[in-house]
Amino acid sequence: MAALISLNGVGLSHGAKHILNHVDLAVDEREIVTLIGPNGAGKSSLVKIALGLEKPSQGQVTRRADLRIGYLPQRFAIDAALPMSVRRILTLTAKADDAMLREALREVGVENLIDASVHNLSGGELQRVMLARALIRRPNLLVLDEPTQNMDIGGSVECYQIIQRVRDRTNCGVLLVSHDLSIVMAATTRVYCLNGHVCCSGHPDDVSRDPEFLRMFGPTGAGTLAVYTHHHDHEHAPDGHVVHEHQHHHGHHHG
């Protein structure tokens, strides 16, 4: 089957300013593609092109006919003047009954917040709610723009677990943008290192040793690229108490 989405030779320029140059990128079913790069590397522009929000100046974007995108935008601030509950924000553009909403919120661990006001949520909680919102659309491609911002290490780790769990359950593809070079999801199938163009791409372990990558981020920056593999013997429920019965292990290791 064809890739969910593929970008071929995509370029973007605003006036004389070249933002993206000849980018090739594809996401297949079940694939987790991580896009990393410094600020101003064009990551957000690439996401906009993939979503169809912006037209590329050169190249083509091919979307599979049955593509359903679930999108988690990077910055999300809701004006305090606009009253909005979690339940309401989940159903802004999608129809879903109570059971579906609860299921999606349970998936991200914040079912208890269903009737809360979004203005009372912490940054991390809002991020989870927005992830649940993306899941309600039953996407076959998740586009996540810095999903772990506003989260501490524990929260980020759990967020990556959720993404992997969703991928395992629904076979969706994932396009994940991260400015955090030091940690890349273990389940990542392919890392694209972007700086206007694709500097290097490949399996996370290979990319971390790629001379282009070292040149771009320097030996200290690159040296800290850690592929996140973990063994937890416990997890924390959102209210903080330790949950023992849910043990988590990876079925395999990369390397």
Binding site: L51, G52, L53, Y71, F76, I89, L92, T93, A94
Partner: peptide, 14 residues
């Protein structure tokens, strides 16, 4: 309302 909350998200959702 959707557009007011997040324009890009609303457009991406059709």
């Amino acid at each position: 309302v959707a557009l007011t909350i997040h324009a890009d998200l609303a457009v991406a959702e059709g």
